[in-house]
Amino acid sequence: MTALDLHADPVTLTAALVDIASESHDEAVIADAVEAALRTQAPGFEVVRNGDAVLARTNLGRPSRVILAGHLDTVPIADNVPSTRALLDGAEVMYGCGTADMKSGDAVFLHLAATIAEPVHDITLIMYDCEEIAAKFNGLGRIERELPEWLRGDVAVLGEPSDGWIEAGCQGTLRMRVRTKGTRAHSARSWLGDNAIHRLAPILTRLSEYSARSVDIDGCVYREGLSAVRIEGGVAGNVIPDAAELDVNFRFAPDRSIDEATEHVLEVFAGLDAEIERTDAASGALPGLSAPAAADLIAAAGGEVRAKYGWTDVARFAALGIPAVNYGPGDPNLAHKRDEHVRIDRIIDAERVLRGYLTA
């Protein structure tokens, strides 16, 4: 078994985690290593294994509980394991799959769990599996079903890459499929048919003319977006197509529910000759920054907070009534890239900020 030293500095621990390959559905080795390290190096923690997720918590009777959550899995490796270090634009960085998303965040959490003897909050640590693939496999969902008491707390911090900012809440996401129908004909006699692809034109016009809303919630500005993301149609090079379809993705501010977001998209396309079906949806998460535990975290980070663009598992905690933020050393723009990397100073800063928050 690979041994992890949780007392090593979080930069060294990041490299150790990155060097353990852990693509989704293949997290057993890294989960074994994390479990063994927590059981032997964090004596104040109760430790539980659930599938390939590892959970640990203190029970010190503190007045509040902070959840530190991070996923152990990565996207498929792209010739970028093991980790390497180099200088980039004058800053020292670490390259490797998962450096930004999100093993640097995991390393900070694990290091703090092993090295803080007297936290001012009780701490729950959740290192889970299968975040990078379909939601039905997500380890947090399994934990919610099987061990719901482990997801109780006053604030949740996800180590998702945020480039050292606190990114509060998250957008909701909605996918709609728009279908048009026509009449098939030979393209040499196109007037005998009705081109289903051409029928998508007014729908695309509505999208190109769409004016996105921005909304300020708790000082975080969420900008919405409605975009075509896939188009399909056509039979052959000499056939007028009788069917076409378009997938539309709506990223909506967390003040809308899924039903409200759906109704908005239907209003955008009102009066057009098309069938519209909702194919996927996930609620957003309100920032919840007025909660005392969340406000203390923002103060510890120097007040640097912004809206989260994209969907993350903070939405799962928000649905449970727990304020949740994303805070990790990685740059979200580097996640999943072949040259994925994290700045060393960002790891050091994240450890410093969270140590101050958990001990002040």
Rank of each mutant, 00 (worst) to 15 (best):
V66Y: 09
I67W: 01
I67G: 05
L68I: 10
L68W: 06
A69S: 15
A69H: 08
G70E: 13
G70C: 14
G70N: 15
H71Q: 10
V75I: 12
V75Y: 11
V75G: 06
P76W: 10
I77V: 15
I77K: 07
I77E: 13
I77P: 04
I77W: 00
A78M: 14
D79M: 00
D79K: 05
D79N: 12
D79E: 12
N80C: 11
N80W: 06
N80E: 09
V81R: 14
P82M: 10
S83F: 03
T84A: 14
T84P: 08
T84L: 02
T84D: 05
R85K: 11
R85H: 11
R85V: 10
R85D: 00
R85G: 03
A86L: 02
L87Y: 08
L88A: 15
L88C: 13
L88N: 13
D89Q: 15
D89T: 10
D89G: 15
D89L: 14
D89S: 15
D89R: 15
G90I: 02
G90M: 01
A91Q: 15
A91T: 13
E92W: 10
E92T: 12
V93N: 11
V93S: 09
V93G: 12
M94T: 15
Y95A: 02
G96Q: 13
G96T: 08
G96W: 09
C97L: 13
G98W: 07
T99E: 05
T99D: 07
T99I: 07
T99C: 10
T99R: 05
A100D: 12
A100C: 12
D101W: 06
D101A: 11
D101L: 11
D101Y: 06
D101E: 14
M102H: 00
M102P: 01
M102E: 12
M102I: 01
K103W: 04
K103C: 02
S104I: 04
S104T: 01
S104G: 11
S104Y: 10
S104L: 06
G105R: 05
G105F: 03
D106F: 00
A107R: 04
A107D: 07
A107C: 05
A107Y: 05
V108N: 06
V108I: 09
F109Q: 04
F109K: 07
L110T: 08
H111I: 03
H111Y: 03
H111P: 00
L112M: 04
L112D: 00
L112G: 00
L112H: 04
L112K: 06
L112Y: 04
A113H: 04
A113L: 06
A113S: 06
A114I: 00
A114Q: 03
A114Y: 02
T115Q: 09
T115K: 10
T115R: 08
T115F: 05
I116H: 09
I116Y: 11
I116E: 11
I116G: 14
I116R: 12
I116D: 10
A117W: 00
A117V: 09
